[in-house]
Design a binder for these strands. Structure first.
Lengths: 358, 358
DNA sequence: CTGTTAGCGCTTTCAA
DNA sequence: TTGAAAGCGCTAACAG
């Protein structure tokens, strides 16, 4: 009688021989399909357990069944868009709940890497490694990969939109609306020169910020000025520098912090260098990724981007798509929420989305 | 001439036909092998790029080449051993450096999940999904999976040891020595009744703690007392409770905190409830995962477990094994370091390994 | 330098 | 309820 054999590689045929049935029967047992007598099933299972048989996943996928692996793609390198540990773990836990508990692998890919053939962040989909793909992070404005994913018909979800692909399966926040609300709020308070710290230049969320900001200004009868919008990277030093530069214009009396950094110290440092007093001669509306995440106490208002909330809903829709309960891309776009001065008692430690380089 | 075709599935044979060469040639081009003329190579690559061809990874693996995927297994469920976000990200970054930059996928699996066939945390190895496997987290004392992994000859690395498998490929810290050093240090300071908060009951690191503690006591001519060792879970409340219970014994004048929680508030709460003053009528040696991670200021000494350091070296060895530069399991065991009262100026924010449930 | 061919282990028709 | 056999896309052995 065969023991758990370290040397023999057991295939489905070996199991079938051992059990005196055909490979098909074993296949059906392994995949929990009907049409096998209870007696045969238990006999086969006993052998499988005894010899420690597992189906070769490559062969299984090859033959046509969908892969059982959910891929996570990072369209922007981590050095450029440093997703925070908190967000990563948050994502992890959700993926585990929705997919891994069904036996699906969760797979990460780093792009780009060296290879004879050029590839992209959806490699796992093209190689039939993934059954579905979550694209975590902002898309570059000129991204073309997501279009090919969309056209492939495979389930996917992007944590962001793309102007050039309106049908994109997405779960995100309306950054344009966020910028619009922030600017309008400050304009309504009487400011005429509202500056903006703008993150994600070259990426879709950056473009959305610009659009929303300009729309609010035009509605107020003002012409957007280039000097009032500063692109920033996700770095404390850079933000302090850019705040300094923006506030060097003495006519600037209000600032939107859409840097995404949620970092009070960098903002304060920049103000101080410019000889300004935050909350006194400069009003500020910072953006936050948690409902009452305390960015700056001196803020006259705060914009909450319910990114996790949108992502959470989007992932659930993706799970339905993957598991056959829906057939179409999903579009989850949450509106941001502007709150006037949050009472100190309600302020919470920010649950950051990104980390700083420095 | 064919365009990037959304409908046609391109196989290696299609590419070969299109290029007027054989499949083998295409295969060699795709895999960067020698023996293809520059002209043929570029012609093939041009077609590949044009139609967006990618090799089917299942078929590739099936044919014998090793999978290009590194698996991360969590032998204990996250709800039981809550690895911290910091450690997770730390691991992530290292895996990316060592593997993903070579084009290897990083794959996570949750265990157990429902399936007709019972499986274990090394499923990805048995299914030939993984090329190698990192086992992140402590092993249960009765773990048998790792033995089968070891016997399979596939590269693997455990962040911990197993008494019953001395040859286990591991990267860890000598917890037994840690407990020994901690207990001896306190005994040498004159204490006769040294209590210990012990984490990971049922897991190898828990067993190691007990052994080291008992060895120190016996060396000092004392018999270990059961009432002086308390198993704790990774929960603040539980730790506070257990400290309270241990210090209720009025003869206990010293405490080893090998809970792994690095949580001063829980320790203080427990002391307070027992009517003791930490650092005055109770001396404490807490365990820390960062060299000068401040666990409790009142500590008379501190034990540093260089877990990340060991893991880092182990992962490098694993990478060598995977990439053919070594053939054997590796055994990286770092000794813990006991430091007497760390000057306040050197104390750092702890870089926690685990998070709390509560 | 290149072509032909035999499987890898599985699922899935088509038959019984 | 079960078996036999085809074939998924690829790589490697063998041939030229």
């Amino acid at each position: 009688m065969a023991r758990p054999d370290k040397h023999k590689k057991w295939t489905i045929v070996d199991i079938a021989d051992e059990a005196g049935v055909s490979a098909k029967t074993v296949s059906h047992v392994v995949n929990g399909k009907l049409g096998v007598s209870e007696e045969t099933r238990s006999r086969v299972l006993r052998i499988i357990e005894r010899v420690g048989y597992h189906p070769n996943i490559g062969a299984r996928n090859l033959r046509g069944t969908k892969a059982n692996c959910i891929g996570i793609a990072l369209p922007a390198p981590l050095e450029e868009v440093p997703l925070s540990e908190e967000f990563f773990m948050w994502l992890f836990v959700r993926l585990f709940r929705l997919f891994a508990s069904r036996g699906e692998y969760i797979c990460f890919d780093l792009t780009p890497h060296r290879a004879p053939v050029k590839t992209d962040y959806a490699r796992g989909l093209w190689e039939k490694m993934y059954r579905a793909c979550v694209i975590a992070g902002p898309l570059a404005c000129d991204d073309s990969t997501v279009k090919r994913i969309h056209a492939s018909g495979e389930p996917y979800l992007v944590f962001g939109r793309l102007d050039s692909l309106p049908a994109c399966s997405c779960a995100t926040v309306d950054y344009e609306q966020g910028a619009y609300l922030s600017a309008k709020y400050l304009l309504d308070r009487g400011h005429r020169h509202v500056a903006m710290l703008k993150a994600f230049a070259g990426y879709q969320p950056g473009a959305e910020r610009s659009r929303g900001y300009e729309r609010a200004l035009r509605e107020a009868g003002l012409e957007p000025e280039e000097r009032l919008v500063q692109s920033v990277s996700l770095s404390r030093n850079n933000i302090a520098n850019m705040v300094h530069r923006l506030l060097a214009h003495r006519d600037v009396t209000a600032l939107i912090d859409s840097s995404g950094m949620e970092d009070a110290s960098a903002l304060r440092a920049g103000c101080q260098r410019a000889g300004r007093a935050l909350g006194k001669d400069v009003e500020i509306v910072p953006w936050a990724y948690a409902e009452n995440g305390a960015v700056v106490r001196e803020a006259c208002g705060q914009l909450w981007l319910p990114v996790r909330e949108a992502a959470s809903e989007g992932l659930e829709e993706l799970a339905k798509w993957v598991h056959g309960e829906r057939r179409e891309p999903c579009q989850v776009v949450y509106p941001p929420v502007l709150r006037e001065r949050v009472p100190d008692t309600e302020l919470q430690k920010p649950n950051r989305m990104f980390v700083s380089f420095d």
